[in-house]
């Protein structure tokens, strides 16, 4: 464990009424790391994301985010838009673009969201406003090129393919200049070719932009090839942590994915088998 971290989650518990969604979860993400969180449906993965981005407010525990080395903020109790300002960007499980806006406009909103209010400037149309517009325009084009959506700039975001929507969400998140990007099941609903594209795009985001990646994904092939380290959640608690190889060999993980197997056959499932089981659950 290094001291140069992005996220440091300690003993977080999140309840809704009587339902415990996250139970004493601790998690550590190093700066620059591609970290994945896996687990069966309902294990609390999305609740974890929502807690990390300020949408939910865990009752117990601490979450610390460090955008710059030596500088950290406490996440719990901060509003999502402030956390985004601090350097946390995310995508959603079912993509949530602004579907009545074009691809270009979607990214541009991200690029300009942290530039103050400017209502008066906008109404008067002063030179500062025009300069700001120009800056966001060039930033938007840059990002559209980066994710390969330049050709779709004027398309209404709702009519994009699943793969393109994911890339758009990533571009919109990146437009806010984050230090970490949280991806909630980016491969859901995409075809194998799109999956490969996404995998290389995610790696490119980390390598070229230096943005750390925290990933929830069901597609084991993608997770195992992309993630440097994994956490496994089940019933709201962390049941395993380690490198892809370690996780593959972990009995608890196998049991969680296959259900408590009576036959004791659960030896070492290949990644593709794990994926199949998950698809059923």
């Amino acid at each position: 464990m290094s001291d140069d971290y992005i996220f440091d989650v300690k003993n977080v518990t999140l309840r809704f009424g009587g339902v415990v969604s996250l139970n004493d979860v601790s998690l550590h993400q190093n700066r620059g790391e591609i970290l994945a969180v896996i687990g069966p449906n309902g294990a609390g993965k999305t609740s974890l994301f929502n807690s990390l981005t300020g949408v939910y407010r865990p009752q117990v525990g601490t979450i610390t985010f460090s955008g710059e080395p030596g500088h950290s903020v406490s996440v719990i109790g901060r509003k999502p838009h402030l956390l985004n300002g601090a350097g946390i960007a995310r995508t959603f499980q079912a993509s949530r673009m602004f579907s009545a806006l074009t691809t270009y406009e979607n990214v541009k909103i991200g690029a300009e969201s942290h530039k103050g209010l400017g209502a008066v400037g906008a109404m008067l149309g002063g030179p500062a406003t025009r300069r700001g517009e120009k800056l966001s325009d060039s930033r938007t084009w840059e990002l559209l090129d980066f994710v390969g959506l330049r050709a779709e700039a004027n398309t209404l975001s709702a009519s994009l393919s699943y793969g393109a929507r994911r890339r758009l969400e990533i571009a919109r998140g990146l437009a806010t200049n984050p230090k970490v990007l949280l991806l909630d099941e980016p491969a859901a609903g995409t075809n194998p070719a799109e999956k490969l594209e996404l995998t290389s795009l995610i790696r490119k985001v980390r390598d070229r932009m230096g943005v750390s990646i925290l990933l929830i994904e069901h597609d084991m092939k993608m997770v195992m090839s992309l993630a440097e380290r994994l956490y496994v959640l089940n019933f709201g608690g962390v049941i395993a942590e380690g490198t892809p190889e370690e996780i593959r060999a972990n009995d608890a993980v196998v049991v969680a994915y296959l259900g408590s197997s009576d036959t004791g056959e659960a030896a070492q499932p290949s990644p593709s088998e794990t994926e199949d089981t998950d698809a059923q659950g």
Partner: peptide, 22 residues
């Protein structure tokens, strides 16, 4: 302007708008 686009974003999906800092 940026303000008008932000209004559109909030109208459509407040959670997503917050996630990008609005």
């Amino acid at each position: 302007s940026r303000v008008g686009r932000s209004w559109t974003a909030i109208r459509e999906d407040e959670v997503a708008a917050e996630s990008i800092g609005i």
